[in-house]
Amino acid sequence: MTTSPTDPLTLEVVELIGTVVARYYTEYEQAAAQHSLTGAQARVLGLLSLEPVPMRRIAQKLRCEPSNVTGIVDRLETRGLVERRPDPDDRRVKLAAPTPEGLETSRRLRESLDFAREPLSRLSEAERALLRDLLKRMLGENVL
């Protein structure tokens, strides 16, 4: 069954997704500002809190130019939140990695993002898993 991009249900779902995204970004920007970070700096710090990442991959994740990432990482490094390290697998590649202070800042930032968690808490674990799987499917990611 094919749906039209203009059928009422699709339009309603698109509008709801847009509302969720807008509310998330608004709260994310406010939470970042409470830590004297821009939204982009907070996103980079959050990404790095998972693992050290090559600068080029940060740019791909953020969908921006590598030169923009360089400026963001420079400012985070100046604040002592991030450091650059050589990649152990390819010493020509630089990894951006959080410092202990950067990890702590990222943790506090994540904890202050109520909007992302609060509505999800209204869903059961099974509903959250279904939502995750549907979102992954929409993004073209494999779902087991």
Rank of each mutant, 00 (worst) to 15 (best):
M1R: 11
T2E: 13
T2C: 08
T3N: 10
S4P: 04
P5T: 10
T6L: 13
T6I: 11
P8W: 02
P8H: 01
L9F: 05
L9S: 08
L11Q: 12
V14T: 12
E15K: 08
I17M: 09
G18N: 14
G18M: 11
T19L: 13
V21F: 10
A22I: 01
A22M: 06
A22E: 13
A22N: 12
R23E: 09
R23I: 02
T26H: 13
E29Y: 04
E29H: 10
E29A: 13
Q30P: 05
Q30A: 06
Q30I: 00
A32Y: 14
A32W: 06
A32C: 15
A33P: 07
Q34A: 14
S36P: 06
S36C: 10
L37V: 05
T38V: 04
A40Y: 06
A42R: 11
A42P: 09
L45Y: 07
G46H: 09
L48F: 00
P52A: 04
V53F: 05
R56V: 14
I58N: 09
I58D: 04
A59C: 12
Q60W: 07
Q60A: 08
K61N: 09
K61R: 14
L62C: 09
R63Y: 04
R63Q: 14
C64R: 15
C64F: 01
E65M: 09
E65T: 15
P66H: 09
P66I: 15
N68D: 08
T70F: 08
G71A: 14
V73C: 09
D74F: 10
E77F: 03
E77H: 07
T78Q: 14
R79T: 11
R79E: 15
G80F: 04
G80A: 03
L81K: 06
L81I: 09
E83W: 04
R85N: 02
P88G: 06
D90H: 14
R91M: 14
R91A: 14
K94I: 02
K94W: 10
K94F: 06
L95N: 11
A96K: 09
A96L: 02
A96F: 00
A96Q: 03
A97Q: 06
A97L: 05
P100K: 05
P100G: 10
E101Q: 14
G102S: 14
E104R: 13
R108G: 03
R110T: 07
R110N: 11
L113C: 03
L113Q: 13
F115P: 12
A116V: 12
E118Y: 02
E118M: 15
P119T: 04
S121V: 01
S121L: 07
S121H: 11
S121A: 04
R122P: 05
L123H: 03
L123S: 03
S124N: 05
E127G: 00
A129N: 06
L130H: 02
L130A: 04
R132P: 01
L134C: 07
K136S: 03
K136H: 12
R137G: 15
R137H: 00
E141V: 05
